[in-house]
């Protein structure tokens, strides 16, 4: 069955004032919000800018603020998003430079992601050294994903939702941010190289590192992949403080 979905969308072009526009989009009742966003482009305005790719929460490309909260619209059913509301409200992620409409500039974000040495973070792709993981490193004989301390971060799809949710990111681009710090945490767990590990911990311990986090845990709450960047930041702090205490007593 097709349904009519009222949607209020953030519109912006460089040099013009940001504003909202309202549309009605017809979608099947089992559609997701990304279908409605595509409908705005297909039915109303071919100049409407938005990003999407995989439609199943593995690319992180389509992340937006839906009804005031960061979501991946490709996995949110329209009926759920509309429950108790007159219309959908779709805005771009916060704390990124705006490019146009729902599209934000993620270049700076990816540069920080690269700092951990984990440009590509999913288990099946590559390790810190650039060598692909052997199948036996990833999966047990029975074919289940091996339990490792860093399994969770491998879920990061670099969607930028945690950056939009983080109140410290709102204040400054200098902060490394939840995703990059979670990446650094994972890299410290995977590397066998002491110097590499020390360099990564120094990065996390810098003025714009883990100490700028104010423990709002919005990153962990909003992460669509349960990566828990907030927990990673706290674990980095424990490791950094532990090392300092050891060093203080001459054991480091």
């Amino acid at each position: 069955m097709a349904i009519q979905v009222p949607i209020k969308v953030f519109r912006y072009r460089p040099g013009t004032a940001p504003h909202f526009e309202r549309y009605q989009v017809t979608v099947p009742d089992d559609a997701t919000v990304i279908d409605v966003i595509e409908g705005v482009w297909a039915e109303h305005d071919r100049n409407f800018m938005f990003r999407h790719a995989c439609h199943h929460a593995s690319c992180g490309t389509c992340a937006v603020r839906l009804n005031g909260y960061e979501r991946l619209p490709c996995i949110v059913p329209v009926t759920e998003a509309l429950a108790g509301r007159q219309e959908l409200v779709v805005e771009p992620l916060r704390n990124f430079p705006l490019v146009g409409d729902l599209v934000v500039d993620v270049a700076g974000f990816f540069q920080k992601q690269a700092a951990s040495g984990l440009v590509i973070t999913r288990a099946a792709e590559a390790t810190l050294s650039g060598q692909p993981f052997a199948h036996s490193e990833l999966f047990s004989q029975a074919g289940a994903l091996e339990e490792r301390a860093y399994n969770r971060f491998e879920n990061c799809i670099e969607c930028g939702i945690c950056i939009s949710a983080c109140p410290t990111m709102a204040a400054t681009d200098k902060f490394w941010g939840p995703a990059a710090l979670a990446g650094i945490r994972r890299a410290t767990l995977t590397t066998g190289d002491c110097q590499e590990k020390a360099a990564l911990l120094a990065l996390a311990d810098s003025e714009q590192g883990v100490w700028r986090c104010h423990s709002a845990f919005e990153c962990t709450e909003s992460c669509p992949q349960d990566v828990d960047p907030g927990g990673a930041i706290m674990s980095l702090r424990r490791e950094i403080v532990g090392r300092k205490v050891k060093h203080l007593f001459g054991a480091g």
Partner: peptide, 16 residues
């Protein structure tokens, strides 16, 4: 073009 969000820390609407 990055909008300043200086008061995001005080905006708890819909947050956890």
């Amino acid at each position: 073009t990055r909008p300043r969000q200086v008061w995001q820390w005080a905006d708890v609407r819909r947050r956890k």
